[in-house]
Amino acid sequence: MEVPLLRRVLAEFLGTAMLVLFGAGSVVAAFAIGGGSVDYAGLGIIALAFALVVALAIYTLGTTSGAHINPAVTIALAAVGRFRWAEVAPYVAAQLAGGVAGALLIVAYVGDRATDFGGVGVTTLGGGVSVLEGMVAEALGTFLLMFTIMAVAVDGRAPAGWAGFLIGLAVAAEIMVIGPFTGGSVNPARSFGPYVVNDLFGGSSPWVDFWVYVVGPVVGAGVAAFSYELLARPVAAVPPIGPSAESGTPAAEMDTGTPGSPGSEVPTPRRGAAGARSRSKT
């Protein structure tokens, strides 16, 4: 049975809020402890925090909405026929709103000082990094994330129960590599929330660079999704769009039911650990 759109949208809102609260929140904590700066060891802790919250969002919300929690992931899945285009706008709106909510919760426990500790976790270009270089870095980081999602959450040949763990590791890896140059956002909603809230509480967000965190991730995710469909999936393994595109549940999570049982011709989501495999993001 298809999960109602409202329930899925609320799950995307909550998942993205969790991502920003505990992911961008770790940036605020690192700045607070580091006296206004973060070294590479601190970046590793931030990467671990993002990896853990992404994995938890997938395992808890994946069977409800697919746990995209990233507009770039939602758009890429729609582009390759794994998600309804008609539902892209509600998903993206919920993700952006969730990003703002998560950033507001950071201010709720840190106070106005959150704007002094990394601007509520805003992503910024590193010194000497151009807009074009930043877009390339974000595109490459998102490519790794989306290619992993396609392999472990969408592909029906993937082993059950590993999606959250492996997607979380992909997020940690990209932050460790491109974090010093762009912050390793790979997620427009993750950047949008802190940008908005930082401005609301007296900070100054670098909106002129915001498009780096939109164009880069969307392009990177799209290239990854099309590349996986073209190169890694045999035609026989590609299921029809219908059920997974309608429910927000990855095709890899669909069982065909028991032959002869009512409705067995319509796949239904698996439950338990296998059902936690999902199309998440940062």
Score class of each variant (00 low, 15 high):
residue 92 V to A: 11
residue 87 E to V: 08
residue 156 G to L: 08
residue 169 L to W: 05
residue 120 V to G: 04
residue 170 A to F: 05
residue 133 E to Q: 15
residue 160 A to Q: 13
residue 112 D to H: 12
residue 82 R to T: 06
residue 140 L to H: 00
residue 127 G to N: 15
residue 89 A to S: 13
residue 159 P to L: 12
residue 162 W to V: 15
residue 108 A to R: 03
residue 91 Y to S: 03
residue 87 E to C: 09
residue 95 Q to T: 06
residue 96 L to G: 03
residue 90 P to M: 12
residue 131 V to C: 10
residue 133 E to N: 14
residue 113 R to L: 14
residue 139 A to T: 02
residue 150 M to K: 02
residue 129 V to A: 08
residue 90 P to N: 13
residue 159 P to C: 12
residue 156 G to H: 06
residue 99 G to M: 03
residue 149 I to P: 04
residue 117 F to P: 01
residue 104 L to K: 02
residue 135 M to V: 10
residue 155 D to H: 07
residue 83 F to Q: 06
residue 98 G to T: 02
residue 111 G to Y: 11
residue 139 A to S: 10
residue 147 F to V: 07
residue 135 M to I: 09
residue 145 L to C: 09
residue 103 A to D: 07
residue 98 G to W: 05
residue 118 G to D: 03
residue 169 L to D: 08
residue 133 E to D: 15
residue 107 V to D: 10
residue 143 F to M: 01
residue 163 A to T: 04
residue 162 W to H: 13
residue 145 L to Q: 01
residue 162 W to A: 14
residue 108 A to G: 14
residue 144 L to F: 07
residue 150 M to L: 13
residue 158 A to N: 06
residue 113 R to Q: 15
residue 139 A to W: 00
residue 156 G to V: 13
residue 152 V to A: 05
residue 125 L to H: 02
residue 161 G to D: 11
residue 134 G to N: 02
residue 166 L to T: 14
residue 168 G to E: 12
residue 125 L to I: 06
residue 127 G to Y: 14
residue 125 L to F: 05
residue 150 M to P: 06
residue 115 T to F: 06
residue 104 L to E: 12
residue 148 T to M: 08
residue 167 I to F: 10
residue 137 A to P: 00
residue 150 M to R: 01
residue 127 G to D: 15
residue 144 L to M: 10
residue 105 L to M: 14
residue 94 A to Q: 04
residue 155 D to N: 13
residue 85 W to L: 15
residue 107 V to N: 08
residue 86 A to W: 10
residue 159 P to T: 11
residue 121 G to I: 03
residue 107 V to A: 09
residue 131 V to W: 14
residue 149 I to W: 02
residue 105 L to D: 11
residue 123 T to R: 00
residue 110 V to H: 03
residue 131 V to Y: 13
residue 146 M to E: 09
residue 109 Y to G: 14
residue 98 G to M: 06
residue 126 G to N: 12
residue 133 E to R: 09
residue 87 E to M: 12
residue 155 D to M: 06
residue 83 F to L: 12
residue 159 P to N: 12
residue 88 V to S: 10
residue 163 A to K: 00
residue 139 A to E: 01
residue 160 A to W: 11
residue 127 G to W: 12
residue 114 A to D: 02
residue 160 A to N: 13
residue 99 G to K: 00
residue 104 L to N: 02
residue 91 Y to F: 15
residue 92 V to E: 09
residue 108 A to Q: 10
residue 120 V to F: 04
residue 86 A to G: 14
residue 122 V to F: 05
residue 144 L to N: 06
residue 109 Y to C: 10
residue 100 V to C: 08
residue 115 T to E: 09
residue 103 A to N: 04
residue 99 G to P: 02
residue 155 D to S: 07
residue 139 A to L: 04
residue 90 P to K: 09
residue 134 G to V: 00
residue 85 W to Q: 11
residue 112 D to A: 15
residue 122 V to D: 07
residue 149 I to T: 11
residue 107 V to I: 12
residue 81 G to D: 13
residue 116 D to W: 07
residue 91 Y to R: 01
residue 97 A to K: 01
residue 168 G to V: 06
residue 124 T to Q: 15
residue 89 A to E: 12
residue 121 G to V: 01
residue 100 V to K: 00
residue 106 I to P: 00
residue 163 A to N: 04
residue 103 A to S: 09
residue 86 A to Q: 14
residue 84 R to W: 13
residue 160 A to P: 03
residue 116 D to H: 12
residue 161 G to Q: 08
residue 168 G to L: 04
residue 83 F to V: 06
residue 137 A to D: 04
residue 97 A to L: 14
residue 165 F to M: 13
residue 165 F to Y: 11
